[in-house]
Write a protein that binds this DNA or RNA. Structure first.
Lengths: 321, 321
DNA sequence: CTGAAAGCGCTTACAG
DNA sequence: CTGAAAGCGCTTACAG
């Protein structure tokens, strides 16, 4: 029983090293004007006492947290992982730590998390989500540098923005199917958020007759019924998850892929590689997008103006088409 | 040009409401002994000025952050999502915010993140990972309440621990295959970490002849060669990802599932539902495990002793077996 | 090269 | 019910 040891502070170190706390502070931060003798005595004392600096105090006095908050729509969404990696690498290079927060695709929860993140005191927020719109973001964007990755309904003027070019992505997918000889191509979506709408519009512009299915309206079953009845011979899905569901149900029905039905997804997630047939999918440069988002956040912190960036997707062809 | 507005503090609010800052603090925190008149004047002034409390200062003075840090092995691992949800719900109920950090299966990075989390000043850490061992965790476990979810090589005495019962899970899987008439069952793994070893040992105890394959040693190809040569008729995989790879390569080779080869995975992730045939898999009660982890963390914060909990898995049968 | 003072924005006793 | 003082653990000028 030695009693509850109070966590040592800079003052304890100063006493142990017989110097002032100012000097301890300077030595600990590695400032130049400290004699080698004092420095080593201070470092030894700090080590001996098991001293750890108190982050709250440092941040209070410096006014900077060196923390960037990243808000994720949903951990389950494989699409975000590489974006986060991109952000983390760029953050580490700039001396920032990243804290992740997660909203489970629930707009209300996303709003709460966003508020918590700023209440935490992060220097900047990167929102990787299409589930919030300008109303949700605007209030905070005025108070903390913010950049949005993805395609929400709208982005506040004060926020930076980076997204992929959905129109080009959709064109790559549809043109690929057409080159493969398909002229009856369906579009299958699960929401009417901007990214999906943009992909749909690009699709519509390329096909002679639009055949659209909503997964929430039994769309996959209806699509496959139509396929069996001599309808579409190919389907472009708004994302890989939907594409995987189409593939799964098609296999269940004995529809041969890609012979009876070719399928193309969007996002080129891990899933595309794991299902059979492998899924042809549009790939966003996620790592780069994450790095660009962090770069913009740093720019905003330096007083820069918010930018709008659009990244170019590519097509990765696999066995499903 | 109104100049850079300094963020208002409690002192600004006090001045605007013509009261002392102590009273502002009391009113803002909703303490009882403040007259209705003062309270409403203070709240109005705070609102008017757009006052936001400074978290760093609050935490510095209170010594509590109401933050729990969660360290994730890898965002890509679908297994963790429900655990995180369980933690988040339990944390919210207790008035805690959750910050996530992510180590990309890289032990060195995981260690760094763990250090950052404690340097951030979280009140407790929950490590959802089997990639760190007691050495990595011990130093921190003495300084901050910590609970481990999963099965690392070892867990420090000072840390709480919750994991699933791998032996039971493996027994469920193997017994299921045996009931289906299989007597030549293979075990396919991708690492020699404790969870995998425990599953393997339970497997060995149940089969007459062990047939083990390591995915990093071309194991899946060798397994499928053996299957074609009249060897194993079933495979138990250490996790869903490996199981999905087996299924994919089997499909590529024209091996019929489950007729020529039955497959069972572990974790019952989303993947199990999306591939075809659907994957039979052992399910851990992830939400409950997350909630239990947070409960333990709160217990440790209240001076409780670390506990060791083991959750019971169940088997979810799908078309692959 | 080193120390004493002031201050970051808040909360916590303690008087009145 | 309200205010003045002290203090949380640090950093930032500023003297010497």
């Amino acid at each position: 029983m030695t009693g509850t040891a109070r966590r040592p502070t800079i003052v304890d170190v100063a006493r142990a090293a017989s110097v002032s706390k100012s000097l301890v502070s300077a030595a600990l931060r590695g400032e130049p004007g400290v004699s080698a003798a004092s420095r080593s005595r201070i470092l030894a004392a700090a080590d001996e006492l098991g001293y750890r600096s108190n982050g709250w105090a440092q941040r209070l006095v410096s006014g900077r947290s060196s923390l960037v908050g990243v808000l994720l729509t949903d951990l389950r969404n494989a699409y975000q992982t590489d974006i986060v990696n991109g952000i983390e690498d760029a953050a580490a290079a700039a001396g920032f730590d990243v804290v992740l927060s997660h909203g489970r695709r629930d707009r209300e929860l996303l709003r709460e998390r966003l508020a918590s993140l700023t209440a935490l005191g992060v220097d900047a927020v990167i929102a990787v989500t299409g589930h919030l719109d300008a109303d949700d973001l605007a209030a905070l964007a005025d108070r903390v540098p913010m950049v949005v990755v993805g395609r929400p309904a709208s982005v506040p003027d004060a926020a930076g923005w980076i997204r992929n070019d959905d129109e080009t992505g959709a064109r790559l997918a549809v043109a690929h199917l057409q080159e493969r000889g398909h002229d009856r191509i369906a579009y299958v979506h699960g929401s009417s958020r901007p990214a999906s709408i943009a992909r749909r519009d690009a699709y519509r512009a390329l096909v002679t007759e639009a055949r659209e299915y909503d997964v929430h309206d039994d769309g996959i079953a209806r699509l496959l019924d139509a396929v069996a009845a001599g309808g579409p011979t190919a389907a472009f899905a708004a994302n890989d998850r939907i594409a995987a569901q189409i593939v799964a149900e098609a296999v269940d029905r004995g529809i041969r892929l890609p012979h009876d039905l070719a399928v193309v997804g969007y996002d080129n997630t891990e899933l595309a590689d794991l299902i059979r047939p492998g899924l042809t999918s549009v790939d966003q440069p996620r790592g780069e997008m994450g790095a660009a988002a962090m770069a913009q956040a740093l720019g905003l912190l330096d007083g820069g103006v918010p930018e709008r960036e659009v990244a170019s997707p590519t097509l990765v062809v696999r066995g499903s088409s």
